[in-house]
Design a protein around this nucleic acid. Sequence first.
DNA 1: ACGTTACCGGTTTTT
DNA 2: CCGGTAACGT
Length: 742
Amino acid sequence: MSKLLENLNAEQLAAVTLPPQAALILAGAGSGKTRVLTTRIAWLLQTGQTSPASLLAVTFTNKAAKEMLLRLGAMLPINTRGMWIGTFHGLCNRMLRAHYREAGLPQTFQILDTSDQLAAIKRLLKAMNVDDEKFPPRELQHFINGNKEAGYRPPNVEAWDDYTRQRVGLYAEYDAQCQREGVCDFPELMLRCYELLERNEPIRRHYQARFRHILVDEFQDTNRLQYLWLKMLAAHGSETPAAVFAVGDDDQSIYGFRGAEVGNMRDFEGEFKVAAVIRLEQNYRSHGNILDAANAIIANNSKRLGKNLWTDQGSGEPIRVYQAASDLDEARWIVEEIQQLVRDGASRSDIALLYRSNAQSRVLEHQLFSSGVAYKVYGGLRFFERQEIKHALAYLRLLANPDDDTAFLRVVNFPTRGIGARSLEQLQDAARSFNTSLYATVPHLSGKPGVAIGGFVRMVEEMRHVTSELPLYEIVDHILDTSGLRAHYKADREGQERLENLDELVSAARYFMNEADQPVAEGEEALPGDPLSRFLSHASLEAGDHQAEAGQDAIQLMTVHAAKGLEFDAVFITGVEEGLFPHEQSMNDLASLEEERRLMYVAVTRARQRLYLTLAQSRMLHGQTRYAMKSRFFDEIPEALLKWLTPRVQAWSAPSRFGGGQNAAPPYQNESVLAASHRSPPQKSRDLDGLRIGQLVRHARFGEGVIVAAQGSGEDAKVQINFGADVGMKLLMLSMAKLEPV
DNA sequence: ACGTTACCGGTTTTT
DNA sequence: CCGGTAACGT
């Protein structure tokens, strides 16, 4: 046991060894959060305070759950298989499969991912003849999910206006459709599970008596429904509540936009009567200057639970700032800097390029590519989301649950088998009048459509018959051939990769049987459901890696959101500009501005040794050049921590070019401690009082603005300046206006 | 049934 | 600017 607790600092030790009671651990970035969580579990088990079966640990992502299991397995000689450690949705799915009857679901209910759900909503609107201009499917999806995640069924939604009442009606229709088809969307898994516990006393009592310790990771990301679910499962308010051990960081709450409620932390502290909040503030990741900057930034937020990171590693290097003339120059400079770092011995995979929005990656990628620097972009299409994989899964879904209309429509005519829109319309009308699923309606269909679609149904029936006794991977292999999917992609000269992915699906099924879903050993708890249903759940709940093909040593490109939880030796935060970071759609109200600030805090705290902040004075966005001012976050970092690598700009502006046009980007000098690059000065140059296009200036009356264009020369020189939303665009005489470069 | 063209819209994202 | 979708034409 002592070995387990070795090398923990005082706060970590206190957290790990807390008595069984509600606990809130405020774990700052890089403070050993995962370590505390897993050591806590190991300690509870090793000291015999609890058994693997009476413990539940919940995370947000599969990655985090896997990590926890892995580390736990390394700490203790126990079999972690069968333990209730997983994501919120994964655990709910497990419970619903075990009690599908009580939950009012078919045994083989299928899970709709976000795009399936959208398709289902579109189909509903069409069937009900609802104008999708008035009720945009995406908006409706957001409405439905938002309500589910707040715990509201249609009757509970407060609808004061007509429009909302109509949307509530559609919400109800949508739920009815899902029920008819035997499918659950993601929030439905949570809500249905919550209601199961709420309404079924024996089941509720069973789990409440069973789980004596509940551990929650990333508590700041929980939504209202997840909070209620935890409260229910923990038998909050009863004589014998479970001990909930919640770990989180309010300063890293960056998912408010998708329903996360940081307020849950405060509520938890109050409602669960947390005796002592433990703060993990010692950071083992970053050098002092980086932490000082992070602390200084986040200190500007109100409503914090309060926390200050510190390190004993020393201040380290200053934070390097580079202000480029354009997004292209920014990218170029970064790539040069990276090449220098690599020459100095840095490993590419320890360098990250972070950005606020995905659109920014394009220029960076282009520059990396043309310089021959290996890089990896995170956040693309995932394996189980690929078109060909979704098609194959749709056949499998029909085998498991023929009432799944989403799956039916996806493949009834793919590969093409002469079933057109008109036939399907007829089928959908008939299904509506019979109130049966499409599949079940087919036998009632007469005429030519009946024959064509009947053929499809017979094919699926045949598949089901032939595969009924086969192991999972052979089922998958079989449907790929019988459905004609393989043949289809084989005939397509661009289908090679898709074919390979289909083969990969067979491998995934084989792997799933062998590894992820082994038959249970003696005394272990069996996972509910048949192998096929389990595999399909797995595919929906764990859509696969974010196309990060491992192996090659490459620069890591990702959004700041995607970087949460990761760390790198060197981090470049790019596009640190007003309007981009903070994003313009989040600059205007305090709550979202504070989320942007937390995002910046997350970004900064990713760096171990070296942090770069870069920005560009002009940037191509949505097809037009935009000029931005430096981000307000710069003003929140003590000047002494920053090292500006951009020298004071000397105006190198030729009148002929100054007026805009193709070559409006002003030349500049570049002087980096690391990568001194030499660019030839322009042929014609002229000092315009230290001003140039893209330059940020201050005007006595109008405040700060950006020079957008200029015209004329000498006495007649005029500059056009954008002073932001309040003042707007101004054309000023250069000789009259007193402009100060900022 | 499938290809072409016109339009729109455009943070962040896991399950 | 660029991708995704919808409507249109063959």
